[in-house]
Every structure is written in C-alpha cells, then in structure tokens.
Design a protein around this nucleic acid. Structure first.
Lengths: 206, 206
DNA sequence: GTTTAAATCAAACATTTGTTTAATTTTGTG
DNA sequence: CACAAAATTAAACAAATGTTTGATTTAAAC
C-alpha cells in the first residue's frame, strides 16, 4: 500500500483517537470529522476500520535495530552504552506511545483478528539485541550473572507505561502542568530512574 | 448499593468481559447472555452500563492497607519485609488484574466521565505506605539514599503489566501452555525478578 | 388466599455503528 | 479541449447499540 499525504494524515488522526478513546470507542465518523474528510474515504483508502488499524501498525513499524546497533558500535563503556540504550528505548516508546497503547490493548484483546506478526517479530528481535548486549557485558565481567535478562525489557517498558497509563495521577503527584512538563519529567526524572534501576540490577552481587 | 448474589454474579461476568474485550467492545447483550440474564436486568440493577462499571470498581476496592501493615508489624528484617511487600503487591494485582486493566485503560481514556476518586485515593495511600517504609529503611541505614521512591511502585506494577499485556508473546517465549503455568511463572520467575530488581536498586551505591 | 412489591421478560425505542452505492467533482494525460 | 482515472460526496443500508416500556411471573408478608 503506497501512502500519499492524505492517507498519512488520516493514519495520524486515527492513531491519536484510537489511543485516546480506544479502537471500539472511536467511530469512523469521529475520525472523518477530525481529519476533515468524508466518512467513505476510510473504506475507500483502507478497506475497513480494522485495515486502517493495521495500516497504522505498518506505518509505525520503524527500524529500531539500526539505532540500537549505532550505540553498540561506539567506543563507550558498557555502562555508558547501557544508559544510552535505556534512553533510546524510552524515547522511542514515548514518541510512539499512541500506537503502543493501542497495541497493548488490542493485543491482549480477544475481540478481533488483527495481524500482530510484525509486532511479535520486532519485539523478539529487540529483546534478543538487548540480551546479547547484556551477555557480552557479563562475559566481559562488567555485569553480574544470575539475572533474568528476558525480563529486563519488561521492567524498562513497563515502568514507562505505568506512568503513561496513570498520567493524570502522576501529573498531580509531580505537579506537572502540561504536556511539555511531562516530556521534561520523562527526560529529567523517569529515564534516570530506569537507568539507575537497571544498572543496579546488573551490578548487584547476590 | 447493597449487593445480592445475582448482582455480584453480573459484576464478575462483566468484569471479565470488560477486561477481555474492553468496555466499548462489550455490549450489554453480551454480558446478559454470558451471565444468563435478561438484558433489562443491567439497567434495572445498576441504572446504566457506566454505572455497572463503577459498581465493579467499588466492588473491587478492597483494603490493601491492612495486609500491608501486617507485614510491617512483623519482626523480620527490612529485606525480608521488602520481598514480602513485592509479593503482596504482585499477587494482589494478579488476582485483580481484570479490574486493573479496565482502570488502566479507561483512566487514560478521554471518552467517559467515570468517577476515579476512589482509585486515586487508594493509589496515593498505597504509594505513601511504601515510601514511608523505604524512608525508615534508609534512616536505619539498610537502604541507599538518592532514590526516587515514588517511582518504585511504577517499576513493580509496570513490570507485571507489561507481561500481562503481552501475555501471548511471553507465553510463547517462556513456553507456558496454560493459565496455571502462567500463574506459576509469576510466582517462580516474575516475583523473584522484581524482588531482585528492587533490592538491587535499594542497596546499590551511586 | 390475598395483596404488594420485587424480579423477570419480550418487545420496542431511537441512535449509532461500519460499509456500500451511485452520482458528481477533481485531477492528470494525450 | 477531451477523455479516463481517481477522488470526493451525500445518501442509504442493515446491523448493533444502550435504554425503556408495559406486561407477566415470582416471592414475601399478612
């Protein structure tokens, strides 16, 4: 499916609405009104509402691997690399938080038949990239052993999403007034906390 | 609102369906069929579909505080207590994962006007219980300082939910065949991982 | 047994849903 | 301009939605 400007416009509007109101909570008429198009255009361009969602998935499935390998290729220490990896993961997820929320919800949903193979494969690949990096760090003597490396990813991403899903609560709690301050909180507070947590886990003797 | 047996039956069925298919993805007719009642009974008992959801929230808002204080009152070490607290949190969340998923989603949803004050207050209380415990441990010299204690809760819960939301992926990944094996995985693998992570964070020098 | 309130039911209600149709307009090409 | 393909539109479609109605059944109290 080739994407012209109008299709991308629809995809972005729909992505935001799906994340805000849920897939079932968002009607094609709502999308059409927000995107300022005729309601028939969604079917015309994408075929159906479900295909529209799959279109968003495809549109957002970018290449994490390359950015990751750029970090690995540098001449920095294992701990510096580790920090950069955490930053990369969180910033990517934060940037694409909308589609991730949709996926999180629809993937654990028994209602629909949506093809998540791409999501699964990407997840598996990213997990193995991180596990290999940690393994190398262990062999080099920098990271402790006896760590369930396949759960580290869950801790990193999970911490972020708990904040995101309870954004209203944490905005009050940390006195964040607007989205910009939330972004700043993520860079200045959340990312360092996760870096500190993962580093502690990887260096702790047990 | 007093709860007779039939009301509770409806609440439980609706809770499961909302968690599986989402609030918008679950129709009253679906609930009625699953609960083997007439569709008018939902309005008759609860007033509306949204009130039904609030009924579930109320029904599940149990007293975490008491169990928590039981742990604190024991004569065990700070580290043993810490492990027990993590276990308590995860097992409670796992037991009530359905309602938590609903809340996670609807709370970050801009579509509806549902009263989350109870949820907010409970969350705030639980967070402060944990923060006080950690602060005591720091003052007693067992836990390191320079830790963002308000984010520890996010790490604990977030790790669990990332697994839950990606259950299909992790069941494949960890070769779990059924729900019983998932439960076992949580006790035998996930809880120790989180305990290890939090302990590392709280003892790490930086 | 009679009375009264609660519970249950099938049916109907007005909206909203995703999708399709068929006509019209716009765009690009020769 | 003439033509063809693509884009856009309003209208219509059947199906599904949450809720209400009004009648009927059940249960409890006297």
């Amino acid at each position: 499916m080739e994407l012209n400007e109008k299709k991308i416009h629809i995809l972005k509007i729909a992505e935001k609405l799906f994340a805000e109101k849920g897939f079932d909570g968002t009607s094609i008429r709502t999308i059409a009104k927000a995107a300022d198009i005729n309601i028939a255009m969604v079917s015309y361009y994408f075929g159906s509402k479900e295909k529209l969602l799959e279109g968003i998935l495809l549109f957002r499935s970018t290449d994490f691997k390359m950015e990751f390998e750029n970090i690995l290729a540098s001449s920095k220490s294992y701990f510096e690399k580790l920090n950069e990896i955490v930053t990369l993961i969180i910033q990517r997820i934060h940037r694409n938080r909308h589609i991730y929320k949709i996926v999180n919800f629809e993937y654990s949903n028994n209602n629909r038949e949506i093809n998540f193979d791409g999501y699964n494969n990407q997840k598996k690949e990213n997990a193995s990239l991180i596990q290999n990096f940690i393994k190398e760090g262990q062999d080099a003597g920098f990271f402790s052993k006896n760590i369930n490396t396949s759960l580290i990813f869950a801790t990193i991403i999970g911490t972020y999403f708990h904040i995101y899903y309870n954004k209203k609560y944490y905005m009050k709690n940390f006195d964040l007034q607007n989205e910009k301050e939330v972004d700043n909180f993520i860079v200045a507070t959340l990312i360092p906390h996760i870096q500190q947590t993962i580093k502690a886990l990887l260096t702790n003797e047990n």
